[in-house]
């Protein structure tokens, strides 16, 4: 874990989701309108690195969450909100959740999230949490 914190020890390797380096993130660039909110999004690889740090530190569940988060970095805001809504009780049919899992896998290679969705589908069916 010698790299942690990445901000101090590995800043030169860090990239934003849009590929910007830390050096490019300056108030001057913000003032000049050269950066957008998208340029300040976290990159999935960074979250994977943090996941590895969490796992090595003895926090496997947090690590799993950070891996799912890494997959979601590329999913647009609106879509995230829609998935969340669908996962709430009695919102989705069994097939809705399976389709969503397939979509996440197909479009974003989000296999961990897809697995969570499939598990949710099974449990929701068993426990009466699907749309009635």
């Amino acid at each position: 874990m010698s790299e942690y914190p990445l901000r101090e020890n590995a800043a030169e390797q860090l990239r934003t989701l849009s590929g910007k380096s830390f050096e490019e993130i300056t108030t001057e660039a913000v003032a000049a309108g050269e950066l957008t909110g998208e340029d300040l999004r976290t990159h999935g690889d960074t979250l994977r690195q943090q996941a590895a740090i969490a796992r090595a530190g003895g926090y496997p569940q947090l690590a799993a969450n950070l891996l799912r988060a890494a997959e979601l970095t590329e999913v647009p805001n609106d879509e995230l909100l829609k998935i969340y809504e669908l996962l709430r009780p009695e919102r989705a049919a069994y097939d809705d959740l399976l389709k969503l899992a397939q979509h996440l896998e197909g479009s974003y290679r989000a296999t961990e999230n897809a697995a969570m969705l499939r598990e949710a589908a099974r449990v929701y069916r068993e426990r009466g949490l699907l749309r009635r």
């Binding site: 969450n65 998935i83 709430r88």
Partner: peptide
């Protein structure tokens, strides 16, 4: 109005940002 899975997803969504 949540399940453990919706909350877990929300946790990942926040972390992804």
């Amino acid at each position: 109005d949540d399940t453990p899975w919706s909350k877990a997803f929300l946790a990942s969504a926040y972390a992804s940002r």
